[in-house]
Design a protein around this nucleic acid. Structure first.
Lengths: 144, 144
DNA sequence: TTATTATTGATAATAATTCTCATTTTCATT
DNA sequence: AATGAAAATGAGAATTATTATCAATAATAA
């Protein structure tokens, strides 16, 4: 947690930031900025949408949350609960369901691929972004 | 090629579509809709931006081109030259350079990962989307 | 407590994309 | 070649997620 008792951050401990971190850390899912805004309003009625965007940017930069693009025109945010894991998503094109797939860094299926790229192109990977689009179990049945 | 001599498509053969396909098939790179619009205007001065968007959607649906999101706020499009290959991108966060990495489907580094997902979640993958963000060779040197 | 300065909320601005609709093209059928 | 129905187009308005602006407020160090 970035907020302990004393000063432990290079940023100010504001109500908006505390509330937003608390909200996201307790939410399983992939909320958009606007969804987060409305949720946050329940706790902090005066909060503004711009602050939500600014705070999401900040937390993304710090690495406390991750921003995802699932191709529906808006960014989605997720709290990073496990620092030692990679997190992949399967997105159903039919019903929109998002399936999470988490693996430890050690057993990351992309590990070898990433290593080979770093060598082959002398490219230093800082982050990667992988999504799978298709049909979930349920929607496959419905198609028949 | 979708345009042969006679009727070979379920869509009409229009000037805009022919010109756009010709343009993209000859362009190496990752053009945005607007860049494509201005290029197309050189050949077809009367063309409208909406038509460009509509045609790009159409060609994407058909599978003649692929739409990519490199996190710069606009979609980018690329002609699919090789149907039997997967195409990955390395994007330099510093200079914006995009490195293409193409592999045949047989030697796709994601092959096993995809198979395991299809089994594990009973999820039918239709497409996947993988980008690597980081520092290219040149920008790594500059950082020092 | 106070002074400093980061942060905020409201709202305007931006920018990519989509929508609307009257007009024009395409193409199968004469 | 001419015709008519439907598809496609261009111009611009509308939409929508996100950013920028700026005066007011809140958080921190002193």
């Amino acid at each position: 947690m970035p907020f302990g008792k004393g000063r432990c951050w290079r940023f100010r401990r504001t109500q908006a930031r505390e509330a937003l971190i608390k909200l996201l850390s307790r939410t399983k899912g992939h909320l958009s900025a606007e969804e987060i805004f409305w949720e946050l309003k329940k706790v902090l009625p005066g909060v503004g949408l711009a602050t939500v965007y600014r705070t999401l940017d900040l937390l993304t930069e710090i690495g406390l949350i991750k921003r995802y693009d699932f191709k529906d025109g808006k960014a989605r945010y997720e709290f990073i609960h496990n620092d030692n894991a990679e997190h992949y998503h399967l997105i159903c094109k039919n019903c929109g369901k998002i399936i999470d797939y988490e693996v430890t860094l050690e057993e990351d299926p992309l590990k070898d691929f990433k290593n080979s790229i770093q060598k082959k192109f002398n490219f230093k990977i800082e982050s990667s972004d992988l999504q799978f689009y298709g049909l979930c179990e349920n929607c496959q049945k419905l198609e028949k």
